[in-house]
Design a protein around this nucleic acid. Structure first.
Lengths: 119, 119
DNA sequence: CGCATTGTTCACGGGCGTTTCACACGAGCC
DNA sequence: GGCTCGTGTGAAACGCCCGTGAACAATGCG
């Protein structure tokens, strides 16, 4: 019953999304987003923990089917990742599922081999 | 529960809005506003700290939905900013959230390098 | 009627947001 | 090893939102 109205507050770890207040809190601090960034995050948060396809994201935010070759979603995913990482450097919030889509689920990044990554 | 009747006194930093007395105090000194200016500030103050969309502001003050291209809200926001700045030159009271709306929250402007900017 | 004040609309310009492009990089396939 | 596909990433190019000043209309008051 909540799929049609994404106005419900979503809390996922240190991230809190309040669509009805046009507000996103990370560690209780407000995040400054553009309109598209905000809407994209709302869609992802509403389906937190589950994979959302690019087409679904594009339709929800841009209102039309995703055209082949359109990279808008990818670009905005990156913008969100950058802004989220500013406050949560040690977290991975948006996960990529190659060939499927993206999944929103903030969790601590485990650096299994931090030592040699910067070769 | 008080959203419908914005007659409650609002105090935000050095600004005090008393809708029921048709009075605005800045640093305990009364501010001279026109009717529209006053109503706009009341709506903003009633939602202090939160973003209010242009459409919401227009509906509250002018009583009808905001027509595309109408800049009335912007113009009056400016008038308010000018008058507030007369008494509070070092404060930012009304914040712009591009694509979203405006947010009323008086706070000191932090000029990180005021020393060398003007000369 | 002349003037002051307020309300409304317009036009210009800059900055920010959006879109698009080009290249890098890893995974899977032949 | 070369190839293609899918995605990450930086930046240029474009378009629009919004700040701003001012003209014009409406209202009130002497």
């Amino acid at each position: 019953m909540e799929a049609s109205s994404p106005s419900q507050t979503v809390v996922a770890g240190p991230v809190e999304v309040r669509p009805d207040e046009l507000l996103v809190l990370v560690k209780d601090r407000p995040l400054t987003l553009s309109v598209q960034e905000f809407r994209l995050l709302c869609v992802l948060a509403a389906r937190a923990g589950r994979i959302v396809t690019r087409d679904e994201l594009y339709r929800s935010v841009w209102g039309s089917p995703l055209r082949p070759g359109d990279r808008s979603v990818d670009v905005y995913i990156r913008k969100l990742r950058v802004k989220l990482a500013e406050t949560l450097p040690d977290h991975t919030c948006i996960h990529t599922h190659v060939g499927f889509g993206y999944r929103f689920q903030p969790e601590r990044s485990h650096f299994l081999h931090t030592a040699d990554t910067a070769r």
